[in-house]
Each structure stands twice: as C-alpha cells, then as structure tokens.
C-alpha cells in the first residue's frame, strides 16, 4: 500500500516527508510502548502511536521505520517535525483513535504485522 493511500484512509495531515508519499509499506504496528514495537516490527512498516515524544521517533529511526502516524489528533511539536525531517521520515496525524485508525488500514488490505505464539 502506498503511503498516499494511508493519508487518504486516515484523513491525515502530513507534517513531514510530503514529497515521499509514493513509498510502499507492507505492514503496520500500533503501539504506545516502544519495546513492543521493537519486539514485533518487520520490514516496510507504518507505526501508529499515541506516544508523541522524541523516543517514538528515535525508536522508529533505529528500526528503519519511515512512516509514523500520531493517532487521536495529536499534532507534533516543531522539534518532532524537525527530527522527522532530519531522519527522512514521513510524519502525519490522524483524527482517528488507535483502534479506528488500525481498523481502517486493515480493512483496506494492510494485513501484515507481528504475530508471536503464546509461550
């Protein structure tokens, strides 16, 4: 799925990386705890999170995640936008909650994600 399509599905406002919306993603990860992101993330991922701080972007950067969506209408601060631009990331905000945002992407066919057996 192209990031451009995600922007439309989530009725999102793009704050950084608007020139990269033709990028393809294969899976999504919705999480507010960054260790969970690090435990599950694979390749070509869009991260949806309610955590709006430098650690969310730092985690994404370390995992080569190029697309971050802040849920629940959280508008990124200028320092976060600058950080995303410096890392070459696409940063956007959606008015939808985590549940609704993930549901919209899943319904549109973005199915890949981390699955682990119950130990």
């Amino acid at each position: 799925m192209k990031v451009r399509e995600i922007v439309g599905l989530l009725d999102a406002k793009v704050f950084a990386g608007a020139d990269q919306l033709d990028l393809e993603v294969q899976s999504a990860c919705g999480a507010d705890l960054m260790s969970d992101v690090m435990a599950f993330v694979k390749e070509r991922v869009v991260l949806l999170t309610g955590l709006m701080n430098p650690q969310a972007l730092r985690t994404a950067d370390l995992l080569d995640i190029k697309v971050v969506v802040f849920v629940r209408g959280k508008k990124p601060t200028p320092d976060l936008v600058a950080m995303a631009e410096e890392s070459g990331m696409i940063l956007m905000t959606t008015k939808y909650s985590m549940f609704l945002a993930c549901g919209r992407l899943y319904e549109a066919g973005l199915r890949g994600g981390g699955v682990r057996e119950i130990s």
Binding site: L33, S35, D36, A39, L51, Q55, A56, T59
Partner: peptide, 17 residues
C-alpha cells in the same frame, strides 16, 4: 516511565533475542 513509552517488560528479552 510508562507514560514515556517504556516499561513494557520487553527490554532484556529483546536484547537477548
């Protein structure tokens, strides 16, 4: 710490993995 996005209890296991 949890409100900062940490404390999932996955740190050491993630390191070992």
């Amino acid at each position: 710490v949890r409100s900062m996005g940490f404390g999932a209890g996955m740190g050491l296991p993630n390191m070992k993995r």
